[in-house]
Amino acid sequence: MTSGTISIDQERCKGCGLCPIVCPQHVIKIAEDQLNTKGYHPAQLIDPEHACTGCAICSLICPDVCITVFREPHRARMAAVPELSKEVI
C-alpha cells in the first residue's frame, strides 16, 4: 500500500542529482536515457514497490523546487477531522 508519492517537474529539473542521494527509500533515479528541452537528464521516481513515504526530504534539497510531494493522510487524523479527507486533489 503506497503511503506517499512525488511528482517531479521534468522540464524544470536540471538533473543535479541531489534528490537521489538524500532519498531514504532510494526510489529517485536520474533518467540517463531521457533529456528535457534544456538538455538535462531529469530525475524520476522509480517506485514499483510503492516504497515512497512522502517524507518530503527530496523537496527540501531540490534547488529548483520542482518536486511536489503527496502523502496519504493519517487514518486516525482523518477520523478525528473529517474535513481533511475532503481537501484532496
Partner: peptide, 12 residues
C-alpha cells in the same frame, strides 16, 4: 496521484 493523497509539499 491517487485522489486520497494530500499535498504535503509544493512550491511556495
Amino acid at each position: 496521484v491517487p485522489a486520497t493523497m494530500q499535498v504535503v509539499y509544493q512550491r511556495p
